[in-house]
Amino acid sequence: MSHQTPATHRPLATALAEAAAMAGHAPSVHNTQPWRWRVLPEALELRMVRDRQLAATDPDAELVTLSCGAALHHARLALAAEGWTATVHRLPDPAEPELLARLTDPRPAGTDPDAMRSVQCMQVRHTDRRPVSDEPVSGDALNAIATAADGEGARLEILNRDQVLQLAAAASHAAAVEAEDPQLREELAYWTSRAGGVGLTPEVLPEEAPQTTVPGRDFGRPGNLPVGPGHDQAASYGVLHGDEETPVSWLRAGEALSAAWLAATRLGVSVVPLSGVVEVAGTRQILRQVLSGLGYPYLVLRLGVADPAHAGPPHTPRLPREQVVDTTAVDGTA
């Protein structure tokens, strides 16, 4: 079945390849970018790359699946910005668990201005682990961010002050547990010393631990990012959660993370993901109690207004396009 290219837009195979490439801007745990796309004449496939899974931190491939979900949402928006809509099949083949999604039946559609703005946000989105300003995030902005997550199949619960204190205690305990695990420390050291387009470079890691209510991850080494004065007392914290802990639910959680983060970027809200508390079984259970048992936690988000005195940190590196996008099935046809 052939499809007509929307007027003034690129051919379908080119649009699919460009959407896959744009998905490379998605956030991922430790900037592992654990995805690979295969471009077909009329479809796009997303696969998990096991070699970039955090074996010690994420043995059940939950965070890698979440990371790939964020890339999936980025690709969907990039296609919409090009004037295409497609059907998403999540985990379409039980015999091939690494195949996380297949986008099929692409159809011409009107260009989506909202998706175009989201694509612009993909290219400026970043993680700033320094303290935020003293300006709190407005209730309207928090509601908009939570609504964006809800539209993708997960919920973002904004915590009250007492819940934040419970979260802080759980995060502190999780950090202590992980600090005692030599495999986790070795894995973290590997991903903070990589070169070649993945991992966390010194330029994006604080030179000292920031003053925060909820402790961030101890990366085991100082970075080069000046922290400066300040505290995150005006920050808000939310828990991304859902009704299940299945591969599909973790994939949808990644799509919800992408939607929430892009909405936050558009609203001028800084986002810092905190996964440590869900990496340790005991503190993950505590976090579920914080949610009153109403859902399974996937990720914690710190939300704040960036300090205007801070220049934004550099973007984390990205893998070359040819390492994450396979176009061999369409080369010469786009």
Results as ranks from 00 to 15, higher is better:
Thr316Glu: 07
Gly268Phe: 13
Ala263Gly: 01
Leu274Pro: 12
Ala256Tyr: 05
Leu240Glu: 09
His315Asp: 01
Ala259Val: 01
Ala253Leu: 09
Val290Asp: 01
His241Leu: 07
Ser236Leu: 01
Ile286His: 13
Ala235Lys: 09
Pro308Tyr: 09
Gly254Thr: 00
Ala235Ile: 06
Glu245Cys: 04
Leu274Phe: 14
Tyr296Asp: 12
Leu303Trp: 00
Glu244Gly: 03
Trp261Thr: 07
Leu240Gly: 11
Asp243Ala: 15
Val277Arg: 00
Ser258Gly: 03
Ala256Lys: 05
Ala264Ser: 06
Val280Gly: 00
Gln233Arg: 12
Tyr298His: 14
Leu267Lys: 04
Leu257Cys: 06
Gly295Cys: 09
His315Thr: 11
Ser275Ile: 00
Val305His: 13
Thr246Asp: 11
Pro314Glu: 00
Gly312Ser: 12
Leu287Met: 15
Val272Met: 06
Val271Thr: 13
Pro308Trp: 13
Val239Arg: 04
Glu255Ala: 14
Asp232Cys: 07
Arg266Gln: 06
Gln233His: 11
Glu245Pro: 00
Val269Met: 03
Ala263Gln: 15
Leu287Trp: 08
His241Met: 09
Leu299Arg: 04
Ser249Glu: 15
Thr246Ala: 05
His315Leu: 10
Thr265Cys: 12
Ser270Tyr: 00
Val305Ala: 11
Glu245Gln: 14
Val239Phe: 00
Ser275Leu: 11
Val277Leu: 02
Pro308Ile: 02
Gln233Ile: 00
Ala235Phe: 10
Arg302Ala: 05
Glu255Tyr: 07
Gly276Lys: 02
Gln285Asn: 10
Val271Ile: 15
Pro308Met: 06
Leu287Ala: 10
Arg302Asn: 06
Ala235Leu: 08
